[in-house]
Design a protein around this nucleic acid. Structure first.
Lengths: 134, 134
DNA sequence: TTATATACGACTAAACTAGTCGTATATTTA
DNA sequence: TAAATATACGACTAGTTTAGTCGTATATAA
């Protein structure tokens, strides 16, 4: 409960590793997967999503891999998480109105408030914090 | 991802409902389950846990049910959640040291910080807030 | 004594998360 | 231009967690 997925975890580990081991050159999925014992194909898919959402750029072929864009260092974790996993919401009705209770729900307001506060925690954390440590 | 369980959700709905429909008399699991279309046996187990951790008290037999203790209204949600679900932690290593990376993990410090901030959100919210709305 | 309601452990079903596999495509270098 | 390396991406399988069900025991009011 209240857990991040491995997808998000691997993304953060990778962003940090790429930043600190790049020297301008692309870092391959394989080298990250070796370093942290992450299944390679799984990691590759995560990195490909980060490319899709403009947090990384990719270079194909030998000596290829992934590079971080300086501009993305100010990206906050809500953007990263929601790119990978969809909207953050501690209950379903935080995301969509698919609740069968609707108006009869007696905790919607406090739950919404908590949800907003949790989003704020991730909003205040940027990739820069992840890369450097806090 | 980052979801509360139904157990916690049902607990909060119940606490609110009991408080606002009790008038000093116990409220049965059945009446709550009817009101919110929650499976009765499941709800009963949740309420029994709330009794076990002193947030409710129970009365057996006909006209029995559950009552809220005034003293528990200042209980915060970390206590409620952790009573029902165990320690809050957005990744496994927030809870125990079962991470295979150990020292080589490059995001432990920022993750720990985020985890602490999330716990704070739940720590600042009390049952009083859930019962009255925020 | 019967009906009502909590107590609680064992079990099953459903949903979600993690991981694997196969194939295609781009690019470097010999 | 062939071989090796590496990304791109969809489909599938396995594993774990969460949700829900069932059976039985116990307490108590009427």
């Amino acid at each position: 409960m209240l857990k991040l997925t491995k997808t998000v975890e691997y993304a953060l580990i990778s962003m940090n590793y790429i930043e600190n081991n790049s020297n301008g050159k692309p870092v391959s999925a394989k080298s990250i997967s070796d370093q942290f014992s992450i299944p390679e194909e799984l990691l590759a898919k995560v990195l490909q999503k980060l490319v899709k959402y403009k947090m990384l750029e990719s270079v194909r072929g030998p000596y290829g891999g992934y590079k971080i864009k300086t501009s993305t260092k100010n990206t906050n974790l809500v953007y990263l998480i929601e790119s990978l996993e969809g909207p953050i919401g501690i209950v379903d009705c935080s995301i969509s109105n698919d609740c069968s209770l609707l108006d009869s729900c007696n905790i919607k307001s406090p739950i919404d408030s908590i949800n907003q506060n949790i989003k704020s925690v991730f909003e205040k954390t940027t990739l820069k914090d992840i890369i450097k440590g806090i």
